[in-house]
Design a protein around this nucleic acid. Sequence first.
DNA 1: GGAAATCAATCAGTGCACTGATTGATTTCC
DNA 2: GGAAATCAATCAGTGCACTGATTGATTTCC
Lengths: 154, 154
Amino acid sequence: MAAVDLSTHPGHLARRLQQAHHLLWNTMVSEEITSPQFAVLNALVAEPGLDQRTVGERVGLDRSTIAEVISRLGRRALLDKVRDPQDGRRFLLRLTDDGLRVHRKLTVRTARMNQVFLAPLSAEEQDLFLDLVQRVSDAAEGLRNPPEPLRAQR
Amino acid sequence: MAAVDLSTHPGHLARRLQQAHHLLWNTMVSEEITSPQFAVLNALVAEPGLDQRTVGERVGLDRSTIAEVISRLGRRALLDKVRDPQDGRRFLLRLTDDGLRVHRKLTVRTARMNQVFLAPLSAEEQDLFLDLVQRVSDAAEGLRNPPEPLRAQR
DNA sequence: GGAAATCAATCAGTGCACTGATTGATTTCC
DNA sequence: GGAAATCAATCAGTGCACTGATTGATTTCC
């Protein structure tokens, strides 16, 4: 019967955290390029020529979502898709000059935004924050695909 | 030119955290009722008869999103919408018996899921996690509407 | 070497999230 | 008391996120 206090629910806090970030991103970084789109650009700066599925894996986007994000970046002419001559199932992705330029510009703004976003915490708390969030995400992510030993038992 | 390490970007971590939560919610709580939908049910258990806009404010959903969520809950017959006789703009919302039943059932499961979700952290770390995430969200949320003094100065 | 299994990408369908514009009711304020 | 301002709800448009099914190419394995 009794209602619950949502402020003790990590899922609810996670949603609010992302909304807060989205808001700040829109005002401080870009209204055109979203945070997931920047993550894709960044992955392709680190490793040009990746295929779409692998980019999705790197940045944490599933096969359907990564397809849409990449199609939007392609429409904005920030990346090129070329069919892999070695494997006709894959597309190889590479940033255009425009794509590189946008990535460079947003990298600077993103750094500033991160500072503002974490400003309410002390330096030690900021490190702790990043560490705790990452550990919780990694652990839950690990539950998706059962670890090797379990799979081997089948 | 150099790519950036996304694991130091709170926004990227926030997105991954929410995905991780979504995954766990689907497997441990419900595939039909989503976490935002549960938040709405919970708000109406706490304060029956709220209007749609206020519910949105309580759970952190904007006017468009709350409209969709409530329409889905209505379609599932978990809540009733009644035009406010005092103010013809508003609808007053109230859970049905089914809505109360679902809220009760999911409350139990959600508590279990929260434990699993936070299990990788020690008890002290769990408290810290909730506190840090909440402080960062609140601060960013506070930037949306400038505080009283600032508005008064205009 | 050719059928079976695997795999990248796409499609259909559902749901959250936001912005800007519109509609219709209420409140404010001369 | 009636025009102007405000306000709740809705609509149109865009983007992220997931699942299950399909398509077409490649790899595996007898």
